[in-house]
Amino acid sequence: MISRRSVLKAVFTGGAVAGLGVLMPSIALAAWNKAAFETDNQDTAMGALFDGAPSASAEVNLKAPDIAENGAVVPVTISSSMAGVKTIAVFVEGNPNPLAAQFAIPAGTKAEVSCRIRMGKTSAVTAVVETASGLFSASKEVKVTIGGCGG
């Protein structure tokens, strides 16, 4: 069995591992959408990326902490078992630019991405999964606190 460390090493040294598109930003760069990434409004960003609004779906799995250990690097994982996933996007409503990332998922690739996002304050985090048949989303509030004063 391949160890986690070996996998990480393979990725960091440029080996191709399915489902870890986040570590290869060139894939996302190909689809760079300036208007979507630079707006300060989440609805505008969604409008610039998609035709129509997503509907909430239990088929979108969004994993994020209840409270961020460090707002500068908040780990999120999005996955979906729906067929024909084309892209996965992450929005942080309270950020100056709500669209944090969009991942292109090549056909035949497992639809699971992990990344670390920067959050300035407590906010809803929304994942949007685009498939051949529509737009689906899941949201979760992530608390960002100044910390301190622990018992």
């Binding site: 209840d66 409270i67 608390k143 606190t145 100044i146 910390g147 301190g148 004063c149 622990g150 018992g151």
Partner: peptide, 24 residues
């Protein structure tokens, strides 16, 4: 901002969003 943030760590009605400790 500091007082509000600390107060929320004690008095948020959702226990998973509390951090323990008392008010600053």
């Amino acid at each position: 901002l500091i007082l509000e943030d600390v107060a929320d760590n004690i008095f948020n009605p959702e226990p998973y969003l509390q951090s323990g400790g008392d008010m600053v």
